[in-house]
Design a binder for these strands. Structure first.
Lengths: 147, 147
DNA sequence: CTAAATGCAAACTCTTTGCAGATCC
DNA sequence: GGATCTGCAAAGAGTTTGCATTTAG
């Protein structure tokens, strides 16, 4: 599976006329290994000690991945740093727990419903929907109920 | 109406134990005058030349307004700077046009439907919903169709 | 071999902070 | 009068960039 991922990246890069390099593989692997929603700083920490890629390369690589549709950037709520994740083809949105800080994906039909609503009634050509819900997750609610 | 707004701010500040000052009024007025979704920098530009408030005060004041529920901060898409608007009590979300840069409010039942969905099925206590849709607005689509 | 990519360090943007002096109540 | 707030300037995060060197194709 690791092999599959790597091959996929290589092909995508070559297909777009970019070179396959160590730093790019390293950032890609770190991004996949992360549970999603990592900052560039976290990826850098993961990748610089072993000398796989410099901080500047991490930023440059992430920008490239975004452009190629491989990664997705988002600023959840009022967070200071941008967060990165592997681009998912499926409709999803983010649930941010204000208590424990956990960020969950929530897959559902909501995003496509929003899409349909805007395309139909309002003639707005939707390119991207970013839905971030802040609140208290089920686990934290349970902890509060039974202290 | 300008009087009403000012009185409202004054009361809100006093009720929370804060002082009514020139800079706070100036930032509030600039925020109301703006069509929404202004950056702190834009507000500063509006307010510093006439010596009504310093940049640092703009930031401090906006943070205070947010805490009092008078203003709302959001980072639309991958924008670098945060954008501010007067807090609306009604359910709404943002439509960002990738072509002309226009940001529209869209008022509708979608946000409350998202809320209900999560509260009901998933026991997630919703505190805030931020929905940002990026795409091409109706006007820009028309311009492309009829060049 | 040559264009593209990297590392390093410095620059840049947005935002926050420390502190002396001004201001509201 | 005394705590709160402000302006100024400097510091702090996060991110980008210029340039010499390395590297993939």
């Amino acid at each position: 599976m690791t092999t599959n991922e790597r091959v996929d990246l290589d092909e995508r890069l070559r297909a777009a006329g970019y070179r396959v390099t160590g730093p790019r593989r390293a950032v890609w692997n770190a991004l996949r290994a992360a549970s999603g929603h990592v900052t560039a700083e976290q990826l850098t920490a993961q990748v610089t000690p072993s000398g796989q890629a410099d901080q500047a390369s991490v930023y440059r690589t992430l920008a490239l991945f975004e452009q190629l549709g491989l990664a997705r950037q988002s600023r959840l709520g009022d967070a200071d740093a941008a967060r990165w994740e592997v681009a998912h083809p499926d409709e999803h949105f983010h649930l941010v727990c204000a208590n424990c800080g956990d960020i969950d994906h929530h897959v559902g039909s909501l995003v496509s419903r929003i899409r349909d609503h805007l395309e139909g009634d309002h003639r707005f050509e939707v390119r991207d929907v970013e839905l971030v819900v802040t609140g208290i997750c089920a686990r934290c609610r349970d902890d509060e109920d039974t202290p």
